[in-house]
Write a protein that binds this DNA or RNA. Structure first.
Length: 747
DNA sequence: AGCACGCCGACT
DNA sequence: GTCGGCGTGCTC
């Protein structure tokens, strides 16, 4: 009976974008059938009197037994927002990162698209045409043939009159004619064809000339070239200022010359107009940008340009790993060690790791670039899984800046009790000399605010957030105490609310550094760059542009000042306190510190004048700091890899975190329930750490517990996860549980 | 996530 | 007696 005709898409597998684990099978009504393809968003009935948005992730041949199938209600986009390759990548990622089906598809779409509803655009590159087939005239002439299908008849008559026309025109003429056209095509009365346009590569404006490469750059490019068309991962290890970006640009130019596409991932704060401008200058409109500074509408527009093939190069942050670049030939991950490639809020995934997966699936060359490669990537290169390319020298053979360590502990023991803005004499003298020479200074401190802690000198009470288990930061200019986790503010009172005693602040932040610099150097033009001063990408760009035009002498800031910018006027970089990242409860703390120091030191001496770096620290002998000062990545990495191997941490093991959040009682009970369910599944291969309250025990009034699992490979971790599934779906006491594969944040 | 079902405590 | 707490199951 079942006429399993070969018309495909009778059944679809739909990942429902609700927090429901599982994919569901639906029937496709024949009227909707032509519009349903892989990656399409659809509306489906779900549960009792509910409607859900879902994503088409497959076309099963048969339905599960004993279930009455329901019908797809509506197709939400005129064309699927994802390419089939992306659907497969997202499915893979959902499984690996333990994310419910559909959740990554939803997260991957630009918010503008999810909110609005897809805008018209062709499903394939090129122009689609419709033309009447041989039988059409006969059918139209026969009064009976289409008697009961007036819509089809109207379309057919239009087509007979106009001949072969773009489908776009037909859509305009018959806004609701989509099913009619599809029906006519099925009857063989209308032909639909796609005309692929000529490769656009040759038509591009090459406004910015490519500079001459150094021998090391040229050698790297030769290797990348030789790998074209195959999956081949490279680690491009180049010191700061060695010209990695130029290698990317030229490798991408080759890919474009072959008519193929490229994807470039950059860290969050690195996607400045400066970098974007370099790509735009070289490739013009062929570049689509994807970053958080764009409005929803802009992001949506960029996504569509890629999807249609109007732009073939995507430059973007983390989420751009899911950008619909056509015919991908090369993926570049710049500053591959950067932690912003790991998504922490929302479905957790690591864009750099997914870049490896995507490159493999699409036979693309992969370039992981960094001056301080992550130990994961280094180990992959060492084991021969990645090819290593080295750029050991800066362009024009400029030397790396000299780094001077200032031992704050010794200063303090020597009787220098208080340093205004924590600027030691060595550093403030260096600033003075730099300003005298009309050169520029960058001061880096990874902490916002004026003072990081406010304490009562009588009762010792510390100003704490009522909702979070953290101390409040004093922001002097705004006159407030601010919680950096939930954003709550309190008026800053010089007196202790508990006992009326006088309070004093401890711990220097960027605001205090800025104040100290202004006081010490009243003539200097000083600006600060952190999340307190700039709120948008545009603000950030404006400050950086003023600094680049040398309208500012000193730039004080957080990590925002460390990334990717090229300021030839900067001859002095001061690190106010190198130890902030060192104390974090995180096995990557040392690695992170080394990377930050190297990165910020690399801002100095990019011009002809050479450069100098002054690093203030209480731990001058700690390898992460001492070796960063000597620019000795190899020694640091070797030592740190040894340590990781000894204590059994990544890259030599894999980890999975279970993060629990809820009421005090619910979170604890859920964590215990998880541990209880996990124990029998550990099987001697998996080590369980915890359950324990998280490093920050409470955020926004929600109590937090962590469990960490560690094993030699992901397989055993998946097994543990499976054993936890039942508890995780409905944890006791209304808590919420999130799994995190390859976790970065230990907080 | 929602929504129904079902089984035990304190209330008009 | 029942109103309502939340534990459990289900959604194609």
């Amino acid at each position: 009976m079942a006429l399993r005709c070969y018309t495909p898409r009778v059944l679809v597998e739909v990942a429902v974008a609700a927090a429901v684990r599982g994919r569901f099978t639906y029937r496709v009504p024949s009227a909707l059938a032509p519009g349903v393809s892989l990656g399409q968003r659809v509306a489906v009935p779900f549960g009792k009197s509910r409607r859900a948005t879902g994503y088409v992730v497959g076309f099963p041949a048969s339905a599960p037994d004993g279930i009455e199938l329901r019908d797809v209600v509506e197709v939400l986009d005129p064309f699927p927002p994802f390419t089939p390759e992306l659907v497969e990548l997202l499915r893979w990622a959902e499984e690996y990162y333990l994310v419910p089906p559909g959740e990554l598809l939803r997260a991957a779409l630009p918010p503008g698209l999810n909110a609005r509803r897809g805008e018209a655009g062709p499903a394939r590159r090129g122009v689609e045409y419709a033309a009447p087939a041989e039988a059409a005239a006969g059918a139209a002439a026969d009064p009976k043939a289409l008697a009961r299908a007036p819509a089809q008849r109207a379309v057919l008559e239009y087509l007979l009159a106009r001949g072969r026309i773009p489908v776009e025109e037909l859509r305009a003429a018959f806004p609701k004619g989509r099913p009619a056209v599809a029906a006519l095509a099925r009857r063989g009365l209308v032909r639909l064809e796609t005309e692929t346009p000529v490769a656009r590569g040759a038509l591009l404006p090459a406004s910015a000339a490519a500079p001459v490469l150094t021998p090391a750059q040229a050698a790297a490019l030769v290797e990348l070239d030789a790998a074209a068309g195959t999956f081949q991962p490279f680690l491009l290890h180049g010191v700061t200022g060695s010209g990695k970006t130029e290698v990317y640009l030229q490798a991408i130019a080759r890919a474009r010359g072959a008519g193929k596409g490229a994807l470039v991932l950059v860290p969050e704060i690195a996607l400045t107009p400066q970098l974007a401008g370099r790509f735009r200058a070289r490739f013009g409109d062929d570049v689509a940008l994807m970053h958080s500074g764009l409005s929803d509408a802009e992001r949506h527009a960029e996504w569509l340009r890629l999807r249609r093939g109007d732009a073939r190069i995507c430059v973007g942050v983390r989420s751009a790993i899911f950008a619909p670049v056509q015919d991908l030939a090369i993926i570049v991950v710049d500053e591959e060690h950067d932690p912003s490639f790991k998504q922490e809020d929302g479905p957790p995934y690591h864009a750099r790791d997914l870049a490896v997966v995507r490159a493999k699936r699409e036979d693309a060359v992969l370039v992981l670039g960094s001056a301080t490669p992550s130990l994961e990537t280094l180990e992959n290169a060492r084991a021969g899984r990645y090819r290593k390319l080295e750029l050991p020298a800066r362009v024009d053979d400029r030397p790396l800046p000299e780094v001077e360590l200032v031992d704050l502990g010794r200063l303090r023991r020597g009787g220098v009790a208080k340093l205004p803005g924590l600027l030691a004499p060595q550093l403030s003298e260096a600033i003075a000399r730099t300003l005298e020479a009309s050169q520029q200074v960058i001061l880096f401190l990874n902490r916002r605010g004026y003072e990081t802690l406010v304490v009562c000198e009588v009762c010792g009470a510390e100003a704490q957030c009522t909702e979070c288990a953290v101390s409040l930061t004093h922001h002097a200019r705004r006159g407030i105490l601010l919680c950096h986790y939930c954003g709550r503010t309190e008026r800053m009172d010089a007196r202790c609310p508990a006992c009326g005693g006088v309070r004093y602040g401890v711990g220097v932040g960027t605001e205090q550094v800025e104040a100290a610099v202004r006081e010490l150097f009243p003539a200097a033009r000083v600006a600060r760059l952190d999340r307190d001063v700039v709120t948008s990408a545009d603000d950030t760009a404006a400050v950086l542009a003023r600094f680049a035009r040398r309208e500012l002498d000193v730039l004080v800031g957080t990590q925002m000042v460390t990334k990717g910018h090229d300021f030839p006027g900067v001859t002095l970089v001061g690190v106010v306190l190198a130890d902030t990242a060192l104390a974090l409860p995180d096995f990557r703390a040392a690695e992170r510190t080394f990377q930050l120091l190297t990165q910020v030191a690399g801002r100095a001496g990019r011009g002809a004048e050479g450069g100098r770096v002054v690093v203030q620290t209480f731990n001058p002998r700690t390898p992460a700091i001492a070796l960063a000062a000597r620019h000795d990545y190899a020694a640091f990495a070797a030592g740190e890899l040894d340590r990781r191997r000894t204590v059994g941490y990544p890259p030599f093991t894999r980890m999975m975190a279970a993060r629990v959040e809820g009421s005090e009682d619910g979170a604890r009970r859920s964590a215990e329930a998880l541990a209880h369910a996990a124990r029998p599944a550990l099987g001697g291969e998996v080590a369980m750490l915890g359950p324990a309250p998280a490093a920050i025990e409470r955020i926004r009034g929600r109590h937090r517990w962590h469990l960490l699992f560690r094993a030699d490979g992901p397989k055993a971790l998946f097994r543990v996860h499976a054993a936890l599934a039942r508890v995780a779906v409905r944890p006791p006491g209304g808590a919420a549980i999130r799994f995190d594969m390859d976790p970065y944040s230990m907080m």
